[in-house]
Design a protein around this nucleic acid. Structure first.
Length: 290
DNA sequence: AGCAGCGTCCGGCCGC
DNA sequence: TGCGGCCGGACGCTG
């Protein structure tokens, strides 16, 4: 499950590979075409496959940035800039390869759905086993309004203040803290894994109402989330099953988890419990987390 | 009007 | 070994 650190790792690898190059050719899989023919919105949103291909071919890749868990490719055609915005969903992965057979693992190779052939002949291949990922071609960010509602980047000045204001607002203060910190309008890029880890580290029960945590503890919680995200970026992200970086390598952060996926608490040995919070499985230690 | 709750994109994996 | 059911980021729709 790619969250902020995994997407950051991907962007840092795509950037040097893609910057300044042109998109010479674009491939969209038959699977995606068939889905779209059947009225589904598989991966390529709000655009026909051929129109998607047409709009990308010949464009120059001007920048590659991460915003929350989204990848923004700024593209330029005939002097006009536009965006290709990609979300990796559950199982999206980009591979930078000379040919598709260079994608080492078969399970990724068989689910390649979009391929960008760059002007140097190399490929940026997008694989998505579960097809929960998204690609949107946009004139500007505002063309997809949810992007404008995203919380500031967690490492930016202002992100803490934004978090505190949101967490203390009428809309959020009665909600479980885990649901609040996983909401992209409150904090950008914190998904189930890092929310679970941060709450464990802070000894906060995931179901505790946001409004029943002191201001000081909320500040510490935010700082903990930021520290864990940074630690994970350093560790190359977390690989539970389907995350791979652009070179096909797994991350190492999963080896540092204190709670996610654990049957027993690493601190006290108590059997962990799992609650459904905001529709997501939420593991915690009933002894340590209050 | 705004929000809760569910449907939607799916293959992998679990358990029977 | 076969197969039904569950899982899940985040939008979009409904009531």
């Amino acid at each position: 499950m790619p969250e902020l650190p995994e997407v950051e790792g991907v962007v840092r690898q795509i950037r040097p590979a893609a910057l300044g190059k042109k998109i010479r050719d674009v491939y969209v899989s038959e699977t995606i075409r068939l889905s779209k023919t059947n009225g589904k919105e598989a991966i390529i949103k709000r655009m026909e496959a051929d129109r998607f291909i047409e709009s990308l071919i010949g464009a120059q890749i001007v920048s590659v940035e991460r915003r929350s868990k989204y990848i923004y490719f700024t593209l330029k055609t005939a002097g006009n800039e536009f965006l290709l915005v990609n979300h990796l969903g559950m199982s999206g992965a980009w591979f930078y390869v000379d040919q598709l057979l260079s994608i080492a693992e078969e399970k990724f190779r068989r689910h390649v759905h979009v391929v960008l052939t760059l002007s140097d002949g190399n490929l940026l291949a997008y694989s998505d086993i579960r097809r929960f990922g998204e690609m949107r071609v946009l004139k500007e960010e505002a063309e997809f309004p949810p992007l404008l509602l995203m919380a500031p980047e967690p490492f930016e000045k202002g992100a803490l203040t934004h978090f505190l204001e949101m967490a203390e607002s009428p809309k959020y203060k009665a909600k479980p803290i885990k649901e609040v910190i996983m909401d992209g309008q409150v904090i950008s890029g914190c998904g189930n894994i890092y929310a679970t880890e941060a709450l464990f580290k802070m000894k906060i029960h995931p179901n505790r109402a946001a409004g029943r945590i002191s201001r000081l503890r909320k500040i510490e919680l935010f700082e903990t989330i930021v520290a864990i995200l940074l630690e994970s970026i350093e560790a190359g992200g977390s690989t539970i099953s389907d995350y791979r970086n652009v070179n096909g390598e797994s991350g190492n952060m999963q080896n540092r988890f204190g709670m996610y996926g654990k049957k027993h608490c690493l601190t006290c040995g108590t059997a962990t419990k799992t609650l459904k919070i905001g529709g997501r499985a939420s593991v915690y230690c009933p002894t340590c987390q209050k």
